[in-house]
Design a protein around this nucleic acid. Structure first.
Lengths: 240, 240
DNA sequence: TATCGTAAAGTGAGATCACAGTTTTATGGG
DNA sequence: CCCATAAAACTGTGATCTCACTTTACGATA
């Protein structure tokens, strides 16, 4: 377990503190991004002192950042030891999050479509193309990164900060799972079909079609996640 | 300003620490409830040391609790002093939150209606009756309390923890405003019409009607909030 | 009287330490 | 070889202190 955790932390590296912002805010932002990107596995524990040592600060700002992430649902207190770990979602929670995503991301997409101009559309298409290439070559890291960029570019165009923040909160919760689901070979092609449909709707300015494509993408992803979670839970039981 | 803040804090009183839970968690829960209930006015500043003195703890657990509330959107960092205060929402943010509420609470209500049994329905009707009585007598505190209970009882019946938590986050943001909007005399009667329609839909088991009633309530409340916000913003400008 | 400057009080941020648990590891006896 | 037991290591929690900075208050001066 020790080596496994070091692998996750190695992607972060020591935090070069930028003045003008608090250490706590930088740690929070970096860890939030890392969790969304799936750098931490579900169930992985995060120690205050070890995180502080890796990031090069004391435990105080780390604790505040982790507490914020707990409040966001990106971490949870685990055992009698009260150690913080990446949550292991249940099937019920996954369905819950899926439906929230359908409501919010579908709405955000419909709202955004009329605010997306030519330059924005070019960025989105670019992200979609990169994602397609990542799917073809089987590059999971690149796929996940461009997938998040593709979606967030669309939603952010709606110009709604609270909505965007809430959607990010949902990605924060499913982020650690996505990397596991992406191993399914069928996922790439099914997902890209939805993405191409969304891109097409963006070009034609069809809000309903865009919303439907986004909802389809979320539903299929949740379906793949649910299947890969079964194996994960069995693994957890065997460990315990 | 000093007296005004003392008024807000007086509703809380010294925190009788319960063992078995951390001080930080108790402070967080109490402050979150207080903000949702509208005990703090928009723009009101919260000092770490003063809060710690009132609650009877050191600044450490208070800071973590406030940081969590900031992450939830219930507080925001204000000036160059980085003091935490209750956010002053803009019209844009209010519209943003309104639409999120429409999506999520409408969905939650539709999901909950088939899970609400006779005993739950009796609690909901009871809350609605109390709210009606509070509207008749003009008791704002009682009205706000029963209003939150009425809505939360419905949503909680859906059995979706993440959804419930997300909805609470929206109430946390508009909580400080609601008390100001409630002064509008027209608000009570308009709001109660929606509530009675919702209660009626619950009895007949009409999911669409319930969803429509909830959406109507949210829309009207946001309309009243928007109007009362104009006066608030002018007041803010005069202060600055 | 108005204004500028200085001092005092207040602010959050972060490091450090002590403490009470739990978990893990090592160790010794069977 | 296995199991029980003790000790060592590790966990979060909370208090305290220093620091840098901002805001406020006060008084001297023009």
């Amino acid at each position: 377990m020790h080596n496994a955790e070091r692998d996750s932390w190695s992607r972060l590296g020591p935090l070069a503190l930028i003045e003008g912002s608090t250490a706590q805010a930088q740690i929070y932002a970096r860890l939030r991004e890392a969790i969304i990107s799936g750098y931490f596995r579900p169930g992985e524990e995060i120690s205050l002192r070890r995180a502080a040592a890796v990031l090069g600060t004391s435990v105080t700002p780390v604790r505040e950042a982790l507490r914020q992430l707990e409040s966001d649902g990106g971490l949870e207190v685990f055992g009698g030891n009260r150690v913080l770990r990446v949550p292991i979602l249940t099937q019920t929670q996954l369905v819950d999050i899926r439906d929230i995503r359908i409501q919010l991301e579908g709405f955000a997409a419909a709202q955004a479509i009329h605010a997306i101009g030519a330059p924005q559309l070019r960025l989105i298409s670019n992200a979609c193309a990169i994602m397609q290439r990542a799917a073809d070559t089987g590059d999971a890291d690149l796929y996940l990164e461009s997938n998040w960029r593709f979606h967030s570019l669309i939603y952010r165009a709606a110009g709604r900060a609270v909505l965007m923040n809430t959607i990010e909160g949902m990605w924060l919760r499913v982020g650690p799972l996505i990397r596991q689901a992406v191993t399914a070979p069928l996922h790439f092609q099914r997902s890209m079909a939805s993405h191409r449909a969304a891109e097409q709707a963006l070009h034609t300015g069809d809000a309903s079609a865009l919303q439907a494509a986004i909802i389809c993408d979320i539903s299929e992803a949740a379906s793949d996640l649910g299947q890969s979670m079964q194996g994960l839970e069995e693994k957890e039981i065997s460990v315990a």
